[in-house]
Simulated scan of single mutants.
Amino acid sequence: MSSDLSKATLRRAALAQRAALPAAEVAQRSTQLCEQLFQHFPVAEWRWLHVFLPLARRNEPDTWRIIHRLWAQKLPVQLAAPVVQPDGISLKHYELTPTTPLRENRWAIPEPVPEAAEVAPALLDAVLVPLLAVDAAGHRVGYGGGFYDRFLAQCRPGALFIGLSLLDGPPLAPIADVLPTDVPLRACLTPGGVWRF
């Protein structure tokens, strides 16, 4: 990888690596991420877990494996999922249950319909965060829209922010262009293990 550790360079490299993964590899690595989450975190003790719903055509981690495991085990954890707002820069969050109707937004990401119960960020015990790369301080590279940094800033102190990465390997050297508004993660799950920051 280039010595340029700007977000734009890291984003391009990670998107290319992830796009090269065959569907079977994405499925296997997503299962490993699910195992890492349940092995390393007290999931059953959380009241509210926020989970992004995957955009399959971009080879995002298949978080449905985590969701279905929670429902199958009947753990007392309530789930929330994001909905991009009409302003195009902010998120609201709605309860996700086995009967919640979903619809795709303009980016083809599934979202709960807003008739579901809205969930305030302050209620969340943990948030599973999409990312493309992360550095040793827990700063992440996402798609560049800032949605999650604005959202994570609204969560209560002590909430766990856990990144999910399909790409293995240690965290990067410091990202060159971290902003004051960037909210660092507490941990990042990879198929091979967990990094804590």
Rank of each mutant, 00 (worst) to 15 (best):
K74V: 06
E104P: 05
R150N: 10
P82Y: 08
L102Y: 02
A27L: 11
F147A: 01
A120G: 05
P171V: 06
A81I: 10
L49C: 08
L75S: 05
R140W: 08
H139A: 02
F151G: 07
A72L: 08
F161P: 00
A137T: 00
E60H: 12
A44Y: 12
R103Q: 14
R58F: 08
S90C: 08
F151L: 10
Q78D: 00
G144C: 01
E111W: 12
K92F: 07
D125G: 10
S90V: 10
R150I: 08
G138S: 13
R47H: 14
P76Q: 09
P54W: 15
P121N: 09
P174D: 12
A136K: 15
Q154H: 12
T100K: 14
W48G: 00
W107R: 07
F41M: 05
S30T: 07
P101R: 11
T63V: 14
K74I: 00
A44L: 07
C34R: 10
G169V: 00
V119M: 06
T99Q: 14
P101Y: 02
V51H: 03
A173N: 06
L53I: 00
G142H: 06
S90H: 08
L166Y: 13
V84W: 05
C34E: 06
P114Y: 07
L164W: 15
A133L: 11
L166A: 10
P110A: 04
E35P: 03
D168W: 11
R65K: 15
V83M: 01
P174Q: 09
W46R: 08
V77C: 06
A133T: 13
R58G: 11
W48C: 00
K92A: 14
H139F: 11
R65P: 09
A122C: 05
G88T: 15
I162M: 05
A122M: 12
I162A: 02
G138H: 13
V51P: 03
L123E: 15
T63P: 04
A133G: 13
A27M: 04
L102A: 09
D135C: 03
F151Y: 15
R150V: 05
G158D: 13
V83R: 09
R57I: 10
K74G: 15
Y143N: 03
P54V: 04
P54A: 09
L152R: 05
G146T: 01
L53E: 06
L96M: 04
